[in-house]
């Protein structure tokens, strides 16, 4: 079995590197759109500590549904056309490892935080302010 350290969603920080190993449950999936040849789809995912927006790409868009538990290996959390999203990118992968049996919170949402370069170390980001407590793209259900 693979033994990678799992990062909790509350601890992910924007970065240009594919270095995030984490596990989350899909809460909602938006409609797929086409960008050139490629299918893209946004999803709201969460774990016990935080939520975040995930960008699904290509066949990933049809592979996962609400309630699926996904393990992301070597994922990347970065800006894509002004949206801060978590995705597998070219070197990462997403795999369904279960369904249903994961508790979650919807706030904070790591994509709804404004990040600024760390004055102490400009290659790193730190949290500047919360833009919205919940996802604006997927508002909480009543």
């Amino acid at each position: 079995m693979m033994t990678t350290t799992m990062t909790l969603l509350k601890d992910i920080v924007p970065s240009a590197q594919n270095n995030i190993n984490t596990k989350f449950i899909v809460l909602e999936k938006g409609n797929a759109t086409l960008e050139g040849q490629n299918k893209l789809c946004m999803a709201l995912v969460a774990d016990e500590t935080a939520a975040v927006h995930v960008q699904l790409w290509g066949d990933e868009c049809n592979a996962f549904e609400g309630g699926d538990i996904i393990q992301l290996t070597n994922g990347i959390f970065s800006y894509q056309r002004n949206h801060l999203v978590l995705r597998s990118g070219k070197r990462g992968k997403m795999e369904k490892v279960g369904e249903f049996t994961m508790a979650y919170v919807e706030t904070p949402n790591m994509s709804e935080i404004h990040w600024i370069p760390d004055p102490m170390n400009t290659s790193k980001y730190i949290q500047h302010q919360v833009i919205s407590v919940h996802s604006r793209m997927f508002p909480p259900i009543a």
Binding site: L27, G66, G67, E99, F100, T101, A103, V105, I141
Partner: peptide, 22 residues
């Protein structure tokens, strides 16, 4: 498994999505 999970780990007021999935 799912019913036991719902009544062991999910907090009251936050169960809506799990109920929908079930």
């Amino acid at each position: 498994t799912r019913l036991r999970f719902l009544m062991t780990y999910v907090k009251l007021g936050h169960q809506k999505r799990h109920q929908i999935w079930f």
